[in-house]
Write a protein that binds this DNA or RNA. Sequence first.
DNA 1: AAGCCGCATTTTATCGATAATATGACGGCA
DNA 2: TGCCGTCATATTATCGATAAAATGCGGCTT
Lengths: 336, 336
Amino acid sequence: MARVTMADVAREAGVSTMTVSNVLNERLPVNEPTRARVMAAVAALGYEVNLTARHLRAGRTDTVAFIVPSFHDYFGEIADKIAPLIEADGRHLVLERTSASPEHEMAAVSVARLQYYDGVLLSVAGLDRDQLDRVRTPKPIVLLGERDVPDRFNHVRLANEEGARLATAHMIEHGSRRILALGCTFDTAHMMSSDRRAGWERALRDAGLDVDARHVVPVSTYTSAAGRDALLDVIASGLPFDGVFAVTDVIALGAIAALAESGLRVPVDVQLAGFDNLDMARFVPPGLTSVDADHEGVAETAVGLLRRQMAGWTGPAEHVVAPVSLVVRGSTRGGA
Amino acid sequence: MARVTMADVAREAGVSTMTVSNVLNERLPVNEPTRARVMAAVAALGYEVNLTARHLRAGRTDTVAFIVPSFHDYFGEIADKIAPLIEADGRHLVLERTSASPEHEMAAVSVARLQYYDGVLLSVAGLDRDQLDRVRTPKPIVLLGERDVPDRFNHVRLANEEGARLATAHMIEHGSRRILALGCTFDTAHMMSSDRRAGWERALRDAGLDVDARHVVPVSTYTSAAGRDALLDVIASGLPFDGVFAVTDVIALGAIAALAESGLRVPVDVQLAGFDNLDMARFVPPGLTSVDADHEGVAETAVGLLRRQMAGWTGPAEHVVAPVSLVVRGSTRGGA
DNA sequence: AAGCCGCATTTTATCGATAATATGACGGCA
DNA sequence: TGCCGTCATATTATCGATAAAATGCGGCTT
């Protein structure tokens, strides 16, 4: 069961290992008869190149990593968009996960691990600016996600504030006056939820409505269960509301459950909008109005930046804010 | 920006590279003063081991791959269960995807790629028995998924037929008489959908009901969109039905959308049950009754088998059928 | 005091491939 | 005939780490 090496193939074909290498990599030309003998030997022995050895010597793995907090939902959907773009260049995408805990994220981002990849897409959920600043790697890297990051990194994020504003303004336009910001926070350390809160706030102000701090409802984690629990608490408290802007679709799904359990009708009693436009948003009755983050476009932008670095570009890092739009469905009154 | 190697550390500390290696790996004992000098040099230079070189020499990567058809939904959820189990052994999990196309799956499974990992969990969605039989690797490998696989592989799959029977019988018990098998097929090449169809059929026969071939409704792909479209077609055709067993929760979600759009009430007019018990099933109103595949247990079983192989076990392969149970929610009449 | 032993450390060889360089056969041309 | 260039193939050195074997030194025994 010993592995077949290039030397075995060379012996079988009666040539040197370099000739085998040249045949397989088409680096230097090889005469046809020799070439045929080598190919025959490769087939006969079932040889496959040892990628580790190649990497050590040639410094290339043709592999890109996408490092995510979890494999779930949003990241799974994004990853499925990124993969074909990476494969189009003849490279291979692998996912690693950091559990959204800073220690794990730092470990995944340790230079030792990154060495293996030709490039890295890092979704920065659990890392703050200081931690990122400690990441010193000569490898091409692009950051994704709603965080403040050091200038030297390429970075793609969403127009969070604008998206939240769109969704909130839309609900105001269709009659909501007391809109919860579910999963939002005043804590600026987490830019996703604080920027989206700011957008919610701006929509209210633009419409001349009061901003009531009680309407900002934090969640313990970004899960449907936490969204549901938080909204049930609000309902139980008796605080009146007629709209919910959920900071993500996953949380919006929890909100849908809470509203249904409480006998509140969507969109008649309460309008609801989410953020991310996950596949699921189209199908959950009555259809979830959601801010579309254009996964496809984000993926293309990020991969484009990475590709440029892998090709040797060393210009200044770019910080892209991807535009968003509102997809209106049945959970708000503008929908069908 | 040249990388710091062990030789650089050795020079800085005034020792040989082997001493550095021994300090870092704690293989042979090293005197405390020497050890301290080495650690100081490591810190001063910011040295990190080159994992590729270590792999080439030591043959170990401490990395396990989970190879999936897509990063979405079911596989994302399973992967999040598997990751902590792998990490508990001090190893690292990465995901690769095969796009559910045979060529890609074969490429991902090529011995060349597998060499990099200490072990592989392979979700066999797009591969048939013959293709799997061509996979020859000395690496520990465990197959997951609803396919017929060669005996020599360890394999974990679900009790598909029993799960489908449970779900269908439950709907019959609560009054459904004409239950569609949405996403099912008679084609035995795809065991997931044919085994689940068989379970549906058995429940009908057990209850003395007719099996109507028109009730087996295939889908073009295993997506919510395809599930919705297929069910809308049935509704448009006028074929009467009062229950839907969807072959997966993702398809059940599409069914929910189709039913809602058509003004059919769940569970009053139509009962609905899915399979997989995804997180989402708890939250989509009125709660999706679903066959629980015990992701946690499946993950533990599969990782257990893999761990055993990585520890050197060479006994015969095991073929585990994971038990399932029915989680009743509001989409069937037994629910709350 | 010679000999042996144990321990810390170094030397050597190797994992499997490939970049850079060397060799050698052959043809063309003066 | 002799010299040179060209093309195919072979040799050598190397990527960075580590297993195995070698060295060397101080202490202990008799």
